[in-house]
Design a protein around this nucleic acid. Sequence first.
DNA 1: AGCGCTCCGATTGTCGACAAATACGCTGAC
DNA 2: GTCAGCGTATTTGTCGACAATCGGAGCGCT
Lengths: 240, 240
Amino acid sequence: MPWLSRSSTNEVINRICDKIWLAVVQRTLRPGARLKEEELTEIFATTRARVRQALLILEQDGLVTITPNRGACIAEPSVEDAQDAFCARIAIEQRLVARLCQTASAEDIRLLREHIDQERRAHERSDHEAVIRLSGEFHMLLAKLSGAELLLRILRMLTIRTSLITAMYQTAATQTCGPDEHDRILAAIEARDALSASHEMAHHLHHLETALRLSDAPTPVSGLREALAAVVPKRSPSSS
Amino acid sequence: MPWLSRSSTNEVINRICDKIWLAVVQRTLRPGARLKEEELTEIFATTRARVRQALLILEQDGLVTITPNRGACIAEPSVEDAQDAFCARIAIEQRLVARLCQTASAEDIRLLREHIDQERRAHERSDHEAVIRLSGEFHMLLAKLSGAELLLRILRMLTIRTSLITAMYQTAATQTCGPDEHDRILAAIEARDALSASHEMAHHLHHLETALRLSDAPTPVSGLREALAAVVPKRSPSSS
DNA sequence: AGCGCTCCGATTGTCGACAAATACGCTGAC
DNA sequence: GTCAGCGTATTTGTCGACAATCGGAGCGCT
């Protein structure tokens, strides 16, 4: 578990945070899903206070939204949030890769290449779940290798938003951006070509964003979620 | 109180967060200062649970550090953290002002001008406390006017770091960067000159950073803090 | 039958007390 | 006189129970 949100001092709380975050990335938990405290309490075999702390942390990260007397749900970022997140990601990750061009060690590059290989393997066996997860982790790995604790934290907040958005406005095309672009970014880093690296990164993120924007107007999936839940509430109309 | 950290649902908790943040900005609370829970409890006339929540939020923001069984202190960011924070601020705030060049309304510009006027007045009457506070608030105001909730949050995390660092490595020169640079940024925004605006912003932040870097090597003030506290513990040597 | 009201179940929010851990001061021995 | 060991006292961490609030079902009224 090369995982990333050791925000709290407590091990249990970190496990809760990581698990939920992982479930969201793997599309097991959809945006808008309810997170009942008691439920989580018995799932993780802990107390409600711990769960509560974990939820507070996740709210700070933007993964869940807590509404006063109604509990926690997986967040549903607005389109504006997504645009802001992409904007900030472009700004930050450009700097990030440019910096890595100067600081990256051979070991760093090896790790990145290994990661991309994993991505490629997952892609080849059509393991969409792993593809999505690994694709996000690549960017986190970049931040991690930069050694900047702060950038890692910020990038986590940003990737959380973009992951949620892709989960909400998911089109078939969204998850097909293979590891090629990551590969080109790595190549630029390896060549110590900062300009090219930041350019590739900008291109990559812009690509991701526009792939989403396609489905922006037509199908805000989650916008219909509540409505659909009310209309087709799992009850066959023949019975009553 | 045009304040910024309404992270929590609870009013009391927000007040605690704001007050502490304000105290840090005004140099009333120095980095490394101990924050005892019980103490805060009676100061804010609340319960320890509230205080605890507030401290957790502040830890997420990077304003305090909580060490497992030893409580909370005002954070003391490392020099690397500071550099990262400035790096990220430059990346983000450049985008920010460029964006404001397109979206800023007349009302926005009026607010910014008013703020700068406040800065100037504070500067003229040598109210250093207000100068520091307002100088930081200017950047937060920019983020606020951009309308991007997310950018505001990130920028808060970043300005917290830079504020802490300036409090730690403070030289006389640090706080003298008058409102002129802010003024030039505003002028560029008003002229809808995105390139110039982002350039001015980069220059401004770079200026701030180098002003600090001067004292980087020579006097890590807070490094001596504990030592000094142990050596000169407010007790006159004549008494005992 | 449609609509509004009330009551009830479920869920969250809050608090106080207890347990654990650490820092400090004291005593005693070398 | 100094240092090690121990006990206490302060501070944080945790938990369980209670109170407040919200959503929904049921019921009565129009």
